[in-house]
Simulated scan of single mutants.
Amino acid sequence: MPQITVDHSKTLSFDREGFARDLHTATVEIAAARPEACKTQFRPSEYTAFGYEDPAEQGHAVVHVTLGLLAGRTDEVKAQLTEAVLELLRKHIEDDGVVLHASAEVRDLDPSYRKFER
């Protein structure tokens, strides 16, 4: 915990290392997570479709960040964290002329959530 996934169009010029570092810092500061518990997976998508646009045009790109936290954070904390995520996306994704559709959400992990480490 937290479990963080970043789904994004492969075509983005994205400083993933810097984003993850800054996101982990924000998650610790805003949601009281432990630094060593922050884990982020990036999942670049080979193919992104937007509306009726020909995907070969690559005029649009998508990024969506999901943060799964143990239950107990207030709605205000969750909203503050998603706003921080959007600011970090602005900072770490180059504006290369495509229309960027960025979004983020914080959700509570299901009570069945378990993990192990080796």
Results as ranks from 00 to 15, higher is better:
Leu89Ser: 02
Asp95Cys: 04
Asp96Ser: 09
Gln58Met: 05
Arg73Glu: 01
Ser103Met: 05
Leu88Gln: 06
Val6Glu: 03
Ser112Thr: 12
Gly72Trp: 10
Glu53Val: 12
Thr5Ala: 06
Phe42Thr: 09
Pro35Trp: 15
Ala49Val: 14
Asp108Ser: 11
Glu83Trp: 03
Gln80Trp: 02
His24Cys: 10
Ala33Glu: 15
Gly51Tyr: 03
Leu86Asn: 10
Asp75Ile: 03
Ser13Leu: 07
Phe50Ile: 08
Glu83Asn: 15
Met1Asp: 06
Val98Leu: 04
Val65Tyr: 08
Val28Thr: 10
Val106Ile: 05
Leu23Arg: 07
Ile4Tyr: 11
Leu89Gly: 00
Arg34Gly: 10
Arg21Trp: 03
Val99Asn: 11
Thr11Lys: 00
Thr27Ser: 12
Val77Arg: 10
Thr5Asn: 09
Gly18Cys: 01
Gln80Thr: 08
Arg90Gly: 02
Phe116Gln: 15
Pro44Ala: 08
Pro111Lys: 13
Tyr113Thr: 14
Phe42Asp: 03
Asp108Phe: 07
Leu23Asp: 06
Ala31Glu: 09
Ala31Arg: 10
Asp108Trp: 06
Lys78Asn: 11
Asp22Gly: 03
Ala32Leu: 08
Lys115Asp: 07
Arg21Asp: 09
Asp7Cys: 09
Pro2Ala: 04
His64Ser: 09
Pro111Glu: 13
Val63Phe: 04
Glu83Lys: 15
Glu17Leu: 01
His8Arg: 05
Ile30Ser: 09
His24Asn: 13
Gly18Lys: 02
Gly59Gln: 06
Thr66His: 12
Gly97Phe: 01
